[in-house]
Protein backbone atom coordinates (compact mmCIF):
# COMPACT_ATOMS: atom_id res chain seq x y z
CA UNK A 1 0.00 0.00 0.00
CA UNK A 2 1.49 3.32 -1.01
CA UNK A 3 0.38 6.18 1.12
CA UNK A 4 0.31 9.64 -0.36
CA UNK A 5 1.41 12.43 1.90
CA UNK A 6 -0.60 15.52 2.74
CA UNK A 7 1.76 18.44 2.48
CA UNK A 8 1.68 22.13 3.34
CA UNK A 9 4.04 24.00 1.04
CA UNK A 10 5.12 27.38 2.35
CA UNK A 11 1.68 28.02 3.82
CA UNK A 12 1.44 31.43 5.47
CA UNK A 13 -1.52 31.79 7.82
CA UNK A 14 -1.56 35.55 7.37
CA UNK A 15 0.46 38.00 5.34
CA UNK A 16 3.79 38.45 7.03
CA UNK A 17 3.68 35.30 9.14
CA UNK A 18 6.52 32.85 8.70
CA UNK A 19 5.38 30.21 6.16
CA UNK A 20 4.86 26.62 7.27
CA UNK A 21 6.10 23.63 5.31
CA UNK A 22 5.30 20.23 6.66
CA UNK A 23 4.16 16.82 5.57
CA UNK A 24 2.06 14.11 7.10
CA UNK A 25 2.63 10.66 5.72
CA UNK A 26 0.51 7.54 6.02
CA UNK A 27 0.36 5.85 9.38
CA UNK A 28 1.42 8.97 11.23
CA UNK A 29 -0.42 10.82 13.99
CA UNK A 30 0.57 14.47 14.17
CA UNK A 31 -0.61 16.80 16.90
CA UNK A 32 -1.31 20.51 16.62
CA UNK A 33 -0.93 22.44 19.85
CA UNK A 34 -0.93 26.06 20.86
CA UNK A 35 -2.81 28.58 22.90
CA UNK A 36 -6.24 29.29 21.43
CA UNK A 37 -6.04 31.66 18.49
CA UNK A 38 -2.41 31.15 17.61
CA UNK A 39 -3.21 29.76 14.19
CA UNK A 40 -3.40 26.01 14.71
CA UNK A 41 -7.13 25.88 13.96
CA UNK A 42 -6.72 27.99 10.86
CA UNK A 43 -3.89 25.74 9.73
CA UNK A 44 -6.09 22.65 10.12
CA UNK A 45 -8.91 24.32 8.18
CA UNK A 46 -6.50 25.30 5.41
CA UNK A 47 -5.39 21.67 5.17
CA UNK A 48 -9.08 20.70 4.90
CA UNK A 49 -9.68 23.25 2.14
CA UNK A 50 -12.18 25.15 4.28
CA UNK A 51 -10.05 28.29 4.39
CA UNK A 52 -7.46 29.65 2.02
CA UNK A 53 -3.91 30.51 3.03
CA UNK A 54 -2.48 34.00 2.63
CA UNK A 55 0.15 32.36 0.46
CA UNK A 56 1.40 28.88 -0.26
CA UNK A 57 -0.51 25.74 -1.14
CA UNK A 58 -1.68 22.38 0.11
CA UNK A 59 -1.05 19.25 -1.88
CA UNK A 60 -1.93 15.61 -1.51
CA UNK A 61 0.40 13.13 -3.15
CA UNK A 62 1.26 14.72 -6.47
CA UNK A 63 -1.78 16.93 -6.92
CA UNK A 64 -2.74 20.27 -5.35
CA UNK A 65 -5.89 20.51 -3.22
CA UNK A 66 -8.40 23.15 -4.35
CA UNK A 67 -11.05 23.81 -1.77
CA UNK A 68 -13.14 21.63 0.46
CA UNK A 69 -15.08 19.44 -2.00
CA UNK A 70 -11.82 18.66 -3.79
CA UNK A 71 -10.22 17.65 -0.50
CA UNK A 72 -13.18 15.39 0.32
CA UNK A 73 -13.00 13.75 -3.09
CA UNK A 74 -9.28 13.13 -2.59
CA UNK A 75 -9.94 11.32 0.66
CA UNK A 76 -9.24 14.06 3.17
CA UNK A 77 -11.88 14.12 5.90
CA UNK A 78 -12.43 16.90 8.41
CA UNK A 79 -14.16 16.64 11.79
CA UNK A 80 -15.36 20.03 13.00
CA UNK A 81 -14.94 21.48 16.44
CA UNK A 82 -18.42 22.65 17.25
CA UNK A 83 -20.47 19.50 17.25
CA UNK A 84 -23.77 21.24 17.89
CA UNK A 85 -23.41 24.03 15.35
CA UNK A 86 -21.71 22.33 12.42
CA UNK A 87 -21.73 18.62 13.15
CA UNK A 88 -25.00 16.95 13.98
CA UNK A 89 -28.35 17.41 12.29
CA UNK A 90 -30.64 17.71 15.28
CA UNK A 91 -33.82 16.96 13.34
CA UNK A 92 -32.48 13.79 11.74
CA UNK A 93 -32.21 10.29 13.16
CA UNK A 94 -29.02 8.70 14.43
CA UNK A 95 -28.95 6.48 11.36
CA UNK A 96 -29.31 9.36 8.88
CA UNK A 97 -26.76 11.41 10.77
CA UNK A 98 -24.33 8.56 10.39
CA UNK A 99 -24.99 8.02 6.69
CA UNK A 100 -25.22 11.58 5.36
CA UNK A 101 -21.70 11.73 3.90
CA UNK A 102 -21.98 8.34 2.25
CA UNK A 103 -25.61 8.17 1.05
CA UNK A 104 -24.52 6.55 -2.20
CA UNK A 105 -23.21 3.49 -0.38
CA UNK A 106 -26.74 2.40 0.51
CA UNK A 107 -28.15 2.46 -2.99
CA UNK A 108 -29.45 -0.90 -4.17
CA UNK A 109 -30.93 -0.95 -7.68
CA UNK A 110 -31.37 2.82 -7.71
CA UNK A 111 -33.04 3.30 -4.34
CA UNK A 112 -31.79 3.67 -0.78
CA UNK A 113 -31.97 0.45 1.17
CA UNK A 114 -32.66 1.06 4.84
CA UNK A 115 -31.41 -2.43 5.52
CA UNK A 116 -28.04 -1.84 3.90
CA UNK A 117 -27.73 1.39 5.86
CA UNK A 118 -28.65 -0.35 9.07
CA UNK A 119 -26.04 -3.05 8.46
CA UNK A 120 -23.35 -0.48 7.79
CA UNK A 121 -24.33 1.37 10.93
CA UNK A 122 -24.26 -1.75 13.09
CA UNK A 123 -20.68 -2.56 12.13
CA UNK A 124 -19.53 0.93 13.15
CA UNK A 125 -21.68 0.85 16.24
CA UNK A 126 -19.81 -2.24 17.34
CA UNK A 127 -16.41 -0.90 16.44
CA UNK A 128 -16.92 2.38 18.28
CA UNK A 129 -19.05 0.83 21.03
CA UNK A 130 -21.82 3.37 20.54
CA UNK A 131 -24.50 3.29 23.22
CA UNK A 132 -27.74 3.90 21.33
CA UNK A 133 -30.86 1.82 21.84
CA UNK A 134 -32.64 2.68 18.60
CA UNK A 135 -30.90 4.27 15.59
CA UNK A 136 -34.23 5.62 14.32
CA UNK A 137 -34.45 8.06 17.21
CA UNK A 138 -33.24 11.62 16.90
CA UNK A 139 -29.51 12.09 17.42
CA UNK A 140 -30.27 14.55 20.21
CA UNK A 141 -31.32 11.59 22.38
CA UNK A 142 -27.65 10.57 22.60
CA UNK A 143 -25.03 11.77 25.05
CA UNK A 144 -22.31 14.11 23.78
CA UNK A 145 -19.77 11.30 23.66
CA UNK A 146 -22.02 9.07 21.61
CA UNK A 147 -22.89 11.92 19.26
CA UNK A 148 -19.18 12.36 18.69
CA UNK A 149 -18.80 8.65 17.97
CA UNK A 150 -21.55 8.90 15.36
CA UNK A 151 -19.76 11.83 13.75
CA UNK A 152 -16.52 9.85 13.70
CA UNK A 153 -18.38 6.87 12.22
CA UNK A 154 -19.73 9.22 9.53
CA UNK A 155 -16.14 10.15 8.68
CA UNK A 156 -14.83 6.60 8.83
CA UNK A 157 -17.57 5.43 6.47
CA UNK A 158 -15.98 7.66 3.82
CA UNK A 159 -12.80 5.60 4.21
CA UNK A 160 -10.56 8.65 3.98
CA UNK A 161 -6.79 8.52 3.74
CA UNK A 162 -6.30 11.53 5.97
CA UNK A 163 -8.26 12.52 9.05
CA UNK A 164 -8.16 16.13 10.16
CA UNK A 165 -9.64 16.21 13.63
CA UNK A 166 -10.43 19.50 15.29
CA UNK A 167 -10.40 18.85 19.02
CA UNK A 168 -12.27 15.55 18.71
CA UNK A 169 -12.53 14.82 22.43
CA UNK A 170 -13.90 18.18 23.50
CA UNK A 171 -16.77 17.72 25.95
CA UNK A 172 -16.46 13.94 25.81
CA UNK A 173 -16.38 11.66 28.86
CA UNK A 174 -13.26 9.74 29.84
CA UNK A 175 -14.49 6.29 28.80
CA UNK A 176 -15.40 7.53 25.32
CA UNK A 177 -12.05 9.27 25.07
CA UNK A 178 -10.23 5.99 25.47
CA UNK A 179 -12.44 4.32 22.88
CA UNK A 180 -11.60 7.14 20.47
CA UNK A 181 -7.86 6.91 21.21
CA UNK A 182 -8.00 3.20 20.45
CA UNK A 183 -9.75 3.86 17.14
CA UNK A 184 -7.26 6.58 16.15
CA UNK A 185 -4.37 4.19 16.79
CA UNK A 186 -6.06 1.44 14.78
CA UNK A 187 -6.60 3.82 11.88
CA UNK A 188 -2.98 4.92 11.92
CA UNK A 189 -1.79 1.33 12.16
CA UNK A 190 -3.82 0.63 9.02
CA UNK A 191 -1.87 3.31 7.18
CA UNK A 192 -4.09 6.40 7.31
CA UNK A 193 -2.70 9.74 8.46
CA UNK A 194 -4.21 11.66 11.32
CA UNK A 195 -3.76 15.32 12.17
CA UNK A 196 -5.28 16.08 15.52
CA UNK A 197 -5.72 19.49 17.06
CA UNK A 198 -6.14 19.26 20.79
CA UNK A 199 -6.46 21.71 23.61
CA UNK A 200 -5.13 19.09 25.98
CA UNK A 201 -1.41 18.52 25.90
CA UNK A 202 -1.66 15.17 27.69
CA UNK A 203 -3.80 13.90 24.85
CA UNK A 204 -1.22 14.89 22.27
CA UNK A 205 1.61 13.37 24.27
CA UNK A 206 -0.36 10.16 24.59
CA UNK A 207 -1.36 9.82 20.95
CA UNK A 208 0.98 11.62 18.62
CA UNK A 209 4.25 10.74 16.98
CA UNK A 210 5.17 14.40 16.82
CA UNK A 211 3.62 17.75 17.60
CA UNK A 212 3.61 21.13 15.86
CA UNK A 213 3.40 23.86 18.46
CA UNK A 214 1.87 27.09 17.17
CA UNK A 215 2.77 30.55 18.36
CA UNK A 216 1.78 33.79 16.63
CA UNK A 217 0.41 32.21 13.45
CA UNK A 218 3.33 29.99 12.70
CA UNK A 219 4.95 26.78 13.89
CA UNK A 220 7.24 27.82 16.73
CA UNK A 221 8.60 24.33 17.19
CA UNK A 222 8.21 20.80 15.96
CA UNK A 223 8.82 18.33 18.74
CA UNK A 224 9.13 14.57 18.47
CA UNK A 225 10.26 11.53 20.42
CA UNK A 226 11.75 11.86 23.88
CA UNK A 227 11.62 15.65 23.77
CA UNK A 228 7.82 15.56 23.69
CA UNK A 229 7.14 16.51 27.28
CA UNK A 230 4.53 18.62 28.94
CA UNK A 231 7.05 21.25 30.06
CA UNK A 232 8.65 21.58 26.66
CA UNK A 233 5.35 21.97 24.81
CA UNK A 234 4.04 24.48 27.32
CA UNK A 235 7.18 26.56 27.23
CA UNK A 236 6.95 26.82 23.44
CA UNK A 237 3.23 27.61 23.64
CA UNK A 238 3.97 30.56 25.89
CA UNK A 239 6.85 31.71 23.74
CA UNK A 240 9.56 31.27 26.31
CA UNK A 241 13.05 31.44 24.86
CA UNK A 242 14.32 27.93 24.25
Amino acid sequence: MTEAALAANEVALRAGAAPISNEVSGGEIVGLAGLDGHGQERFLKILAGLETAASGAVSFGESPVHGFYDAVSKGIAYLGRDRRATGIFSSLSILDNFAISTVWHDVRSGLISRRARRQRYESFKERLSVVAPDPRLSITTLSGGNQQKILLARLMAMEPQVYLLNDPTRGVDVATRHVLYGVFRELAAAGTSIVILSTEIEEILLLCDRVLVFREDTVAAEIAGAEMTNERVISVMFGEPQ
Binding site: V72, G80, F89, S101
Partner: peptide
Protein backbone atom coordinates in the same frame (compact mmCIF):
# COMPACT_ATOMS: atom_id res chain seq x y z
CA UNK B 1 -31.63 12.46 2.62
CA UNK B 2 -29.25 15.19 1.59
CA UNK B 3 -32.17 17.59 1.14
CA UNK B 4 -33.38 16.98 4.71
CA UNK B 5 -29.82 17.48 5.96
CA UNK B 6 -29.37 20.73 4.04
CA UNK B 7 -32.69 21.99 5.38
CA UNK B 8 -31.80 20.96 8.90
CA UNK B 9 -28.44 22.74 8.92
CA UNK B 10 -26.70 23.80 5.73
CA UNK B 11 -23.33 24.52 7.34
CA UNK B 12 -23.21 21.07 8.87
CA UNK B 13 -24.32 19.63 5.54
CA UNK B 14 -21.47 21.43 3.81
CA UNK B 15 -18.88 20.08 6.27
CA UNK B 16 -20.37 16.62 5.79
CA UNK B 17 -19.53 16.93 2.09
CA UNK B 18 -23.13 17.38 0.86
Amino acid sequence: GQLMAVGSDDRAAFTAGV
